[in-house]
Nucleic acid binder design. Structure first.
Length: 804
DNA sequence: CTGACTTTGTCCG
DNA sequence: CTGGCGGACAAAGTCAG
């Protein structure tokens, strides 16, 4: 493994990553070598290229490991695997379903076609949609030069100097897409859109009905007048000729095509699947002046491959009998199958597998070399199996926003951008009324190296302030990790996942018991060490799954990774141990929340603001009646102490009206002594919803009463579920060391060993710092800020999608 | 060992 | 000069129990 003898194959490796990907339609028979030479010349030496090279070598090492593994496989293992594969094959064969008729429809060069339709001058020119930095799609003329989606415009220009690059017009594509989808819905009301320009349909039911239709229902008229009217709604300038500029010279119309009296076309369609799909494509073209291609097959996997077969403006039907499917699959290159990309293709290629028939022949080997999910997937492909019923995607699992820009190194800018991203994300979250518990920061440095750092909170969050409170800490940790050098970023992103709504709808009620049991388990199992200083058990600060908060371990990481992300020296502030960072971060969260909340936002009017978060079980209680809420906490507490819970459905029902955090503070502290619950400021601050208001105005001395050794304190921290305790506990504890705490913000030694007091100091200190950091920044103005100011040199990309 | 969680990588359009 | 965005999922590592 340590041989790293990839240099011999690095040249070839380079090609496989960087070279033209010509397996798609419209790229046949062009001068690959010449094109690749130009791509190389424009790429060589760039940071992007260097990074691609690095990734390529990682793939090569993966392949080497795989080959090594292969060499150690015994005949016995192989025959055992063979038996397993055969068993599975026959099971799958028994379940093969050829009864459905699945269609994959794909608009031809969608964005480019829309732009050409609206500007016929472009028709006979090579053109692409996108920017100098990135192209979304290209027309077929441009593809002859090797210009294709996912290629930067400046390289495309070198391949094809006359290339016209049209900026993306997303709203327009969305509008056209909506028209197309109206047609889809007539054939399958449950059709599955994959993007603006493609969809899967199950037309089995439609065909059933269609068989009984009278012939008059199968005739479509397209008088030019009606076409004009339709488009008149869409845009101001309309070509009066009616039918579109022709995108593709060869539009084979195999159905009868007549001229009616009004000069429109008349088409008659039959009742079989092919006729139905031809009719659908005809109607799409009538409606939008754009052409589509389609594949008809017994499952989604095959339909997708088929739709590519006669592209553009064509269709292909694979008949629904087993032998036809087997024959079709035999010579199919594995790369054509959706889900097998560059890397998998290369790995399989190393084993001599390029076609699906190879896949079938080598299944036993694949079962030994790949994970279960992978080889199961391969087996399905080799048998020509795929999904036979299309389903709309369930609830979304994450939501994110990210932005690329010119090099950014200034802290102030980085925090400002981070905040902006959080704000954008908060807006998007609000649109779908979502809240998530996990916040992930994504960074890409100028060398194209990507890093993600996540932190999971006990409560779902959604507002700008909440997101920023977390994201900013994650960012700060990364900055601290490389300090005194700056982070030289080219991309930043924020993602939210672990949505509360998804959990809420599911088996939540039954899980409350489990939830509390879990807490109980935590408490009891860790109670044996509860006499130790709490800080040893604090979760890791964000972004430190690798134990890099410990200086010695940072060194170790440097040795292992050795790239630009790791600081050349230490990078850990004096006195900023994992423990310090933790308290710092805990405080920072609450601090930001408080700051932001106080500075700008009155409480938002979102749905979820009508609920309160229980400080014991961390669940939202959908009431704003404090008496109800307190009763919940009472029951929750007795549940905790008695090892059971008394939650009922009725308690969780949504209550009306609104309340303030301050009221929560007053009543909850009045009725429940914090010490009785074991609540502590850290606990409360960890919870963005409960923490802010409860903490506000709290007497430190009261809170101090919550003993640090109380298991609940630790559980509250652990219940963040995110950063886990440090791998290597700090050997010496400050609590036994006398007054020697150093503030991670001001770097001054504090004359106390009381954590609560110390944290309060850090709070104040951070307050100053955050205000200083952000105070100078103008309030984020979305309209002006999307065009980045001075130092954001690069372009911002938004709403960019590929279409092929 | 298993489950929960984080990080990275692959793939898609 | 200029090499994207957003989503899903899987692998692999780590830790706690």
């Amino acid at each position: 493994m340590a041989t790293g003898g990839t240099s011999s194959s690095s040249e070839e490796g380079f090609l496989s990553r960087m070279a033209l990907n010509d397996n798609k339609a419209g790229m046949e028979g062009l001068n690959r070598d010449k094109i690749n030479k130009i791509i190389m010349e424009s790429s060589k030496g760039s940071r992007f290229y260097e990074n691609e090279l690095k990734k390529e070598q990682q793939v090569n090492q993966r392949i080497e490991r795989m080959m090594l593994q292969k060499a150690h496989i015994t005949e016995q293992q192989l025959s055992k695997a063979q038996a397993q594969v055969e068993k599975m094959t026959s099971d799958l064969e028994r379940g093969r379903d050829l009864s459905r008729v699945i269609v994959h429809v794909d608009m031809d060069a969608f964005y480019a076609a829309v732009e050409t339709r609206d500007c016929p001058d472009l028709m006979d020119k090579p053109m692409a949609v996108g920017s100098m930095s990135m192209l979304s799609t290209s027309n077929y003329h441009a593809r002859k030069f090797g210009v294709r989606a996912a290629m930067p415009g400046f390289i495309a220009k070198k391949l094809c100097p006359n290339l016209v690059i049209v900026p993306t017009n997303f709203d327009k594509y969305r509008a056209v897409s909506a028209e197309v989808r109206e047609v889809f819905a007539d054939y399958d009301p449950h059709f599955l859109p994959m993007s603006l320009d493609e969809a899967y349909l199950d037309i089995s039911d439609h065909l059933e009905q269609r068989r009984g239709w009278p012939e008059t229902d199968l005739v479509y008229l397209s008088p030019s007048l009606s076409l004009v009217e339709e488009h008149g709604d869409l845009q101001e300038t309309v070509e009066v000729e009616g039918l579109s500029p022709v995108l593709f010279e060869n539009s084979p119309s195999s159905s009868p095509c007549l001229q009616d009296a009004a000069g429109g076309e008349v088409e008659v369609f039959g009742t079989c699947a092919e006729e139905a799909v031809r009719e659908m494509r005809f109607r799409i073209e009538q409606k939008t002046s754009l052409t589509a291609s389609a594949g008809i097959a017994p499952n989604m996997m095959l339909a997708k491959v088929c739709s590519d077969k006669n592209k553009p403006n064509g269709q292909y039907k694979l008949s629904s009998n087993r032998q036809a499917v087997i024959d079709f699959i035999q010579d199919l290159p594995v790369r054509k199958v959706s889900g097998i990309g560059k890397v998998t293709e290369k790995m399989l290629g190393a084993l001599g597998i390029t076609s699906c028939s190879h896949l079938g022949q080598e299944m036993a080997l694949l079962a030994l070399l790949f994970s279960e999910t992978s080889w199961h997937h391969f087996l399905h492909i080799s048998m020509g199996l795929g999904s036979t019923h299309i389903e709309r995607d369930g609830e979304r699992k994450s939501m994110s926003t990210e932005r690329t820009f010119g090099e950014m190194s200034a802290l102030k800018e980085q925090f400002s951008l981070c905040r902006e991203l959080c704000q954008d994300l908060a807006q998007d979250l609000q649109k779908e009324a979502l809240k998530g518990k996990t916040v992930t920061l994504k960074l890409k440095n100028v060398n194209f190296e990507v890093k993600t750092r996540a932190w999971t909170l006990p409560c779902a969050v959604a507002t700008t302030e909440e997101l920023f409170a977390v994201a900013k800490d994650l960012l700060k940790t990364e900055i601290d990790n490389v300090s005194p050098q700056p982070l030289r970023l080219r991309l930043m992103g924020v993602r939210v996942s672990s949505f509360a709504s998804a959990d809420d709808k599911k088996p939540l009620q039954k899980s409350i018991v489990g939830f509390l049991h879990k807490k109980q388990t935590n408490s009891s199992s860790t109670s044996q060490i509860s006499h130790k200083p709490v800080k040893e058990h604090l979760p890791k600060p964000p972004g430190l799954t690798q134990p890099s908060a410990c200086p010695s371990l940072v060194q170790q990481r440097q040795g292992q990774e050795g790239h630009a992300w790791v600081p050349s020296r230490g990078g850990v502030e004096v006195g900023r141990t994992g423990e310090d960072q933790q308290s710092f971060l805990q405080r920072a969260h609450a601090q930001s929340l408080r700051l932001q909340a106080e500075r700008e936002d009155p409480p938002e009017k979102g749905d979820w603001n009508d609920s309160l978060t229980c400080p014991v079980c961390f669940r939202e209680v959908n009431t704003t009646e404090l008496t109800v809420f307190n009763r919940h906490i009472d029951q929750c507490l007795s549940g905790v102490t008695m090892g059971q819970n008394n939650h009922t459905d009725t308690e969780l029902e949504r209550g009306p009206s609104s309340t303030t955090g301050l009221l929560l503070y007053e009543t909850s502290t009045a009725n429940i002594p914090l010490s009785a619950v074991g609540l502590n400021p850290v606990c409360l601050n960890t919870c963005p919803n409960g923490g802010v208001s409860i903490h506000r105005g709290t007497d430190p001395n009261t809170l101090k009463g919550s003993s640090q050794s109380d298991p609940h304190v630790r559980d509250c921290l652990l219940s963040t579920g995110g950063p886990r305790p440090m791998t290597t506990p700090k050997p010496e504890s400050r609590d036994h060391r006398g007054p020697a705490l150093t503030c991670p913000v001001c770097q001054e030694t504090q004359d106390t060993n009381d954590l609560t007091l110390f944290n309060l100091h850090v709070d104040l200190c951070l307050n100053q710092e955050v205000l200083h950091e952000l105070g100078g920044l103008a309030p984020v103005d979305r309209t002006t800020h999307t065009a980045p100011p001075a130092a954001h040199k690069g372009l911002c990309f938004r709403d960019v999608l590929f279409t092929e």
